[in-house]
Design a protein around this nucleic acid. Structure first.
Lengths: 234, 234
DNA sequence: AATATTTTGTGATATGAATCACAATGCATA
DNA sequence: TATGCATTGTGATTCATATCACAAAATATT
């Protein structure tokens, strides 16, 4: 979603940094537009928890830079539900309902986050129909994505899911066929619902078969077609 | 979500049935409030498909009465994602984005549906912030629910998932410990991600252990605690 | 009522992937 | 540079559950 489109047309100061916004928004550009200055933002390093499941929170977080993982306590391990990269709003559903975080969000790279008070955010929604429509669209997208992902995870077997993860990283997160794996193998296991050992075995296998090349944590896709085939069959 | 709360405060006729709404809504009560007359609604019988994956559609459907299953084509079988009972809006994410249905919805009981044109629905959102806020809340709820469900499905083993399904039916759908199973065993398999055979075996087992009693398609929960325990462990 | 069709029950077997166990490597920090 | 902790590689074994195969019910259809 293009956040630049959602600058609110009101004549107030920015709630976050109290700066008169140049484009006449309730949030100034720095807080809504990730391409601007890093005024009023918080820095996180890899491993820092940005939002913690179970905690009370009255802020929506806007991820300006970096990558995070959304994860929640499952019955037997910490399920990673999604990898998200900037720009994105974080913790929306959590903060909206009962204000108890229903999942955790942890930085998996350096990250910059700016916090928006939930009541303010709510007013923003009220005041700007375009903004709230955009949010609805995004939530709808998420729901569909969730459905698909869930159906795939449970129906495909491990190889297919791992292939999907790699393709997803390449196309949606890094937009390149060569990238550095942003999570450990056990995390991959928790994302793709297999054991750490299986991930290790399968990655070696893919490399042996010439589908990928691995140099330390760097992964290069050598044969995208093969990956897609592996993803499809089962 | 309590749909009665979302009657829009505008002075137009109902777009669906062109009746001047008594409560001054853009949709008259019959189209927003499921407890009113069945004016302008379509009847479905068990097995009828209300929304078909892949079809073009410009309507949101409002389920006034009955139960439906939301399902979509997975890599190897038709994944059932959720059982929904009235009142509820159906096909929101589908119709919002590209207008191609991303999943199917099929009646699993007699059902009454009233269709709302998407453009109208959009205007409703624009005009009534309370309504759109309610929709956002609901979508957020769905997302959380999705996360939890997905984590459970993949982490728990079959017995636990089946126990969950039974508890979900009892508490959320039928609101009674005795109910008639609304779907076949193979459908249960597709909902809970196991084979039809496993469902059959596990149901017999639960019955043998005195956790449930089955009389044809009727299921009675005899020991809710046991079910919860089965759900928890694995 | 009689036949067809879908749904269910249950055994036997096959299999994907978890788990256990331990070595090896890499990475951080003193 | 050395020591410690986290990550990874790989074999052997176990286990839950899918799959196959067929019989028995139950439901629908003529």
């Amino acid at each position: 979603m293009n956040h630049n489109a959602y600058i609110c047309r009101m004549e107030n100061d920015c709630i976050k940094c109290s700066v008169k916004p140049k484009v006449a928004g309730v949030l100034c550009e720095c807080c809504l537009d990730p391409s601007k200055t890093n005024h009023a933002t918080v820095q996180f390093v890899k491993g820092d928890m940005i939002i913690k499941q179970g905690n009370y929170s009255t802020n929506v977080a806007f991820l300006r830079k970096g990558m995070v993982k959304i994860h929640l306590a499952g019955p037997s391990y910490e399920q990673i539900v999604r990898i998200v990269k900037a720009p994105a709003y974080l913790g929306l559903p959590t903060t909206f309902g009962n204000k108890i975080n229903q999942y955790s969000i942890t930085a998996i790279s350096e990250a910059q986050v700016c916090y928006i008070d939930i009541d303010f955010f709510r007013n923003l929604l009220k005041a700007n129909e375009q903004f709230s429509y955009g949010i609805i669209l995004e939530l709808c997208q998420n729901e569909l994505e969730s459905f698909r992902r869930c159906a795939n995870r449970t129906q495909k077997q491990a190889r297919g899911n791992l292939a999907d993860m790699i393709l997803d990283f390449a196309t949606n997160i890094f937009e390149s066929d060569t990238f550095i794996l942003p999570i450990s193998q056990s995390e991959m296991g928790n994302l793709v619902d297999t054991s750490r050992e299986s991930i290790s075995r399968m990655l070696s296998e893919f490399a042996k078969d010439g589908v990928i090349r691995m140099t330390g944590k760097q992964l290069e896709i050598l044969n995208k077609n093969s990956l897609q085939l592996i993803s499809q069959n089962g």
